[in-house]
Structures are given as structure tokens and as C-alpha cells.
Design a protein around this nucleic acid. Structure first.
Lengths: 233, 233
DNA sequence: TGACTTTCTGACTCTTGTTTAATATATTTG
DNA sequence: CAAATATATTAAACAAGAGTCAGAAAGTCA
């Protein structure tokens, strides 16, 4: 069994656990279940993955890769301006979060993990095996890649004139991404309680696109027009 | 032992677990630890709290109450315009997230829980005891309260002229909150990898305040001035 | 073939959340 | 006040599930 076949088997376990995590959630999925679904013994899963969380990190890696594909798919279509790209990215981002809940949850969990890591007083509460794992390092890279691609869209927009040139591309993109992350998280609870709630992801989407336009083009309806020196960032 | 003394004891256990969760995290804190720190037997903790997650929900409730205080503290100071309030709220929100990491993590976890709840296919993966618990229902209320207070600030801003009147208050506030939530989550990973990263919560704060100003006052430096009909939302 | 490495198993251990039976301590009631 | 009832409390037992391990099987190499 060469390295290839080993990867094959790893993949098998990974896919089984993705299926199970999606169906029953991380907590409710037992390592025994994963083993059974992969048609191997429980012990063997620990040969391929250090522990359950390591396996989850592998799943998270897969999730973030797929999110990166969303970014890629948007930028690879030529003949559109940057603003249109960012608009479509936003729509697709929400679509992704909605139709791949388990994946998206994993991605947010990862972001939380890094927060924890950045806080020295909490760092020790993280499973060391997770931090050592390749998956974790690669995840930071993929995250970064997404930032790069998004930033590229802003750069493109500035070039083609669909985005005002004073904006600093990277900061602008992360602002947009922050809004996406925040809204997705925030609107669940808001939409829940009051059935009468006017705000939810669907009704809010057009408003968001409008905000994006105004922010990036600077077409806000100013109360008093008093041009501001320097860039937004 | 009347209802009063019972609450007293509940509070004792709660505070012990807050201390422990803060120090060692939720996972690493054992029910045994909580019992020991509360100077009671392990079994008794299950008399006061249905299970570990129920206890965590109680902690989360405390956390969200404290966050609500942050909102309250900002709005209660009179003699300031709405925009200034929202600026200060943003600063204090980040401050809260940073200096009460365990609390903030609990709050975000709760938001995720609601997301899960809203997705029918995942609802069953949530511990039923959590959903039945008073804490959960109250949490939805407190979340809503925060939204109300924040919205009030926007309303105030529109009244006093610090925020342009076309804006729809509620949607505007949730947009701001979404940015806060998103940035806090997103910037951990961004700030981490590259030590050379220019973007992190500190360096970004002035930029955010500027964005807030521009967005709420409509003072963006427009590339081409072409007034847009209707409101942002 | 035989030594050696890699893959694999299933039973075992150990931790820990949760239950329960029994006991003590209040509280009500006749 | 004493019996009856309800409320606290404990320690021990239970159950579930993550992770380990000794050794078997299969594969590789010399």
C-alpha cells in the first residue's frame, strides 16, 4: 500500500465523516459510527487521524477549500467589473452558508479557534494536536487565499472604475467579508423570535447589495455634501 | 430553604462555573470541578441545572446580560448625538469581546445554536433540554433587547441630525452590529498568520469609525456625484 | 525464506456526564 | 407536637464514548 492508497483510505474516512457530521452533527457522531461507515475498525481511524478533532480539522479544511472555490468561481469569469464580482460573491457566499451549513459551521468554528489561539490566556485550552496538525496550518493559508482573491476583486474594480479609487483594497474587502460573516450569524436569532421580523437574510439581500454599491461607488445620498479628504481607510 | 436561598445556591454554582470556564474553557471544565469549587457534591449540581449544557446556557445568559449592559451604558449618557453613541458602542463592543473572551464566545455560540435551530434538518441535533430551558428563551429576548437599544441610537441620530434621515433605523443598526460581529471573528485569523499583517482590530478601529461616519452621514467622497433616489434600505 | 515494516483489529482502559437509591433536612398539616 | 410530605444532598453506580494497546495479518525488501 503506497502513499497513494493511503490517501485513498484517508479520503474514504473523511467522506464518511462528512456525511455523518452533516446528518447528525459533530457531537452526535461517534468515532464508532465513522469507522462503521468507512468499513474499518474504530482503532484504524486513529491510525489515519490523530483524534476526533483532527478529523474535524480535516473536514474543516475541505469546507474552506470549497468556500475558496466559491471565491474562485466568481473571479474566473472574465468580462465583468469588480463591483459586479463582489455583488455576486456576496450572494454566493450566503448561498454557500445556507446550503452547506455543516461546512460553514466548521469554518466559523475554525475562526473561533484562532481567536482562542491569539489569546495567550486561552491558548492552552486548545488541543495541542490540533495546532500541530497540517490541517490547521493549511487552513490559515486558505483563509488568506480567500482574502487575496477578494482583495483582487476590489483591485479590479478600482482599475475598471466600478469602485472609487480612494479605497484601500484589502481593508475594503475585509470590511465586506466582515459584513457577510456578521449578518449570517446575527440574522438567525433576529429572524427567529418575532415571526413578524422584517429583517432576515432574504429580505435583506437587496439592501445589502445597495449598501455595497453605495459604499464602493461613493454614491450615498449625502445629507450635506462636504467632501472628505483622504480615503475611507 | 426558600426560593431565595435556592437562587443563592444556583448563583454560587453559576459563579464557580464562570470562573472555571474562563480559566480552562468549557470542554476542559468537568462537572466534578464545578461541584468541588461550589463545595457541593457532583450530583447536586444536577439538582440545580439539568445538565452541563444547561449550565452553560445559564452562563451564556449572564454573558448576554452583561453585553446588554454595554449597550445600556452607552445610551444612558445623555447630551450626545446618535452617531457618537454608535461610535462609542462599537469601541466598547470590541473592548467587551476582547476582555471577556469566554463570555463573548458563549454569545457567539448561542447565535450559532439559533442558526442550527432555524435549519429544520439540524434542529434535532440540538440537546432538547437546551431548547426547553428558560435561559434559551430569555436569551432570545436579551438579543432582541440589544437590537432595540441599538436601533434607538440610530433613531436618536436621525432626530438630532447626526445620521441622515433616509436610513431605516433597524436595518442600519443590524448592519453595524453585523460588521462588529464579522470583524471580531474575521480578524483573528487575518492578524495571525502574517506578522506583517496591516489589518487587525487595533489598526482597523479608526478606519471603522470613519466608515461608520461616512455611511451614516452619507459623506462618502463620491467618484461621480449622482444622487440616488430612496433610502439605503 | 525470513526479517522487518506497515496496516489492521477488537478488546480493554479511562474519563466523565448523568442517574439513582438512600439519607438528611426542612416544611406542612392534622 | 408528631406524622406525613416535600425538598436538599450525597455517594456510589451506570453508561457512553474517546482513545490505547498488544498482537495478528498483510505487505515489502534482502
Amino acid at each position: 500500500m503506497g502513499a497513494q492508497e493511503r490517501q485513498q483510505k484517508e479520503k474514504l474516512i473523511l467522506e464518511a465523516s462528512i456525511k455523518l457530521f452533516t446528518e447528525k452533527g459533530y457531537q452526535s457522531t461517534k468515532m464508532e459510527d465513522v469507522a462503521k461507515a468507512s468499513k474499518i475498525s474504530k482503532g484504524l481511524t486513529y491510525f489515519y487521524y490523530k483524534n476526533k478533532e483532527d478529523l474535524y480539522m480535516a473536514v474543516t479544511k475541505k469546507a474552506f477549500d470549497e468556500l475558496k472555490d466559491v471565491f474562485r468561481d466568481v473571479i474566473k469569469i472574465k468580462g465583468r467589473n469588480g463591483l459586479d464580482m463582489l455583488t455576486e460573491l456576496s450572494n454566493n457566499y450566503f448561498k454557500f452558508a445556507k446550503s452547506n451549513r455543516m461546512y460553514y459551521e466548521a469554518i466559523l468554528n475554525f475562526m473561533g479557534l484562532v481567536q482562542q489561539y491569539n489569546d495567550e490566556s486561552l491558548r492552552s485550552t486548545i488541543d495541542p494536536l490540533v495546532l500541530e496538525s497540517d490541517h490547521f496550518k493549511k487552513l490559515l493559508e486558505v483563509h488568506h487565499d480567500c482574502g487575496k482573491i477578494g482583495t483582487q476583486m476590489v483591485v479590479q474594480g478600482i482599475k475598471d472604475g466600478s469602485i472609487r479609487p480612494e479605497l484601500q483594497a484589502e481593508a475594503t474587502f475585509y470590511t465586506i467579508w466582515a459584513m457577510l460573516v456578521g449578518y449570517e450569524r446575527l440574522l438567525g436569532p433576529v429572524g427567529y423570535e418575532g415571526k413578524d421580523a422584517k429583517i432576515n437574510l432574504e429580505t435583506w439581500k437587496p439592501s445589502f447589495n445597495r449598501l455595497l454599491q453605495d459604499m464602493l461607488k461613493g454614491t450615498f445620498q449625502a445629507q450635506k455634501v462636504q467632501p472628505v479628504q483622504g480615503s475611507l481607510f
